[in-house]
Amino acid sequence: MSARQILTGALALTALATPITALADVVRGEALFRPCRACHMIGEGAVHRVGPDLNGLVGRRIGSAAGYEYSDDLTEAGAEGEIWTDETLDRFLAGPRAYFPGTNMVFRGITASEDRAALIAYLSAEGGAPDGAAQTGGTDIDPEIATILEIEGDIAYGAYLSSECTACHRAAGGTDIPSIAGLAPSVFIAGLLSYRNGTRQHLVMNALAQRLGDEEIAALAAYFASAE
């Protein structure tokens, strides 16, 4: 019996009620989720960070977590009624940009289908059902992000600062260096904060973000939000 079959329709999975094979998947999925933690939270106390809070993901409408500013592609898919199911998640995790070219998720995808299944098993077990018991505080915003969101960004200063970004980031985006034009301020700020505090590791971005003060991040966020 595959993990997929076990998971079908079993939104209220808990470790205790889960057969051994699926439990093994959940355990492996937790390990696979580790790199995702640079941007996503799941479980008790989870809030939106660079990516949305993933509690209640499996079974909810795509692009629908309250308080998170999605790319147009995900918002539109949700508006058309598309749901995050094992199948849609599998497709997304195989290659996020192949599914949603406009997604802001900077991730190349997981090649092995059994790894994707394990990750989905973990997301389902840990995040619970939509609006279920495990979905906590999905609309809360990280206080560090909220602090910078309250600063009115100086767009002219942001335009000047942005010239440091444009040496590597193009509006059209690349295969590994994404476009940052048009990002929602909360997402943009969360991204820079994750590099500034080291939750996300990247030699160049860590060095650049570490010398950005809150005012400068707010200025850049205001500028890039105005960019289409």
Partner: peptide, 27 residues
């Protein structure tokens, strides 16, 4: 502040660094 690649990096990170340089060139 400065940074430099490390000797013990994974093959995937080295490949990513190269892909990143191609994006940088275009940008």
């Amino acid at each position: 502040d400065s940074f430099v690649s490390q000797l013990d990096e994974t093959a995937e990170l080295r490949a990513q660094t190269y892909r990143e340089s191609i994006d940088w060139y275009t940008a």
